[in-house]
Amino acid sequence: MTATFAPAAPHPAGSATAGPRSALGVSFRGLGRSFGEGTARRTVLRDIDFDVVPGELVAILGPSGCGKSTLLRAVAGLDAPSAGEVLIDGTAVEGIDGRCAVAFQEPRLMPWQSVRRNVALGLPHGTGKAEGDARVDELIDLVELGAHASHRPREISGGMAQRASLARALARRPGVLLLDEPFGALDALTRLKMQDLLLEVRRVAPATVLLVTHDVDEALQLADRILVLGRTPDREGATISEVLTVPGERPRDRASAELARMRSALLESLGVDSHRH
């Protein structure tokens, strides 16, 4: 494995081959989602109004089952909202949206294809062979899977599979990168390294990032703003309970006092007693 990648310099292949798409803004307008019909109807999300600035990294935090993934799926066009709409760069999302790319909680790689072919799956439709090959090479280098490009997903570790999944998402040159707890199933050490990698990737591929997470520290470390979803006792369905702007340049000092205060406040808003954790 080589460490030739220079973080500060833009990647030559990236600039030669049409360059990454620029980051796009995302707007939620009165978004709601309910499942079921009649008396079995259950509201998961309601009244989501929020604007994500192009290039911003927004973490979506909330207790499990509060609709974080549902919100993300609405942006990707994998799921249609019951109310309101999602706008990307001012136009509404209708069906699977080519401006987004998703990395899921599980890597979801095709088990019968090599890491390389899996990454290539993310290339936008109609990408030429030479251009696609160059892009895939570049991304495999970026996520440092060069030595394992010909391996099958079952032959690599969980962390490597998640890096391949991230590379596949980046292959799409997304204007909006949607990350659905992509590091949630990894061990603590690998998770920290993946968080560093994400910051690294952001320097090369300037996309707007929506990151669903249940990890308060991850949100504080990575996000420009944190959007907290929560329920009120009187109404069904979760909505935005808080929006926090996280101060400081990344990578942030994990021991900073200000972040520690925000951490306590966030844990409290999630219903956890921060003095015990």
């Binding site: 973080p7 394992h148 690599i156 570790s157 962390g159 490597m160």
Partner: peptide
């Protein structure tokens, strides 16, 4: 920058 996940490679290379 530290290589993310570099520790995981030795295992797979060894088995290869």
């Amino acid at each position: 920058m530290a290589l993310p996940g570099a520790h995981t490679t030795t295992k797979a290379e060894g088995s290869a």
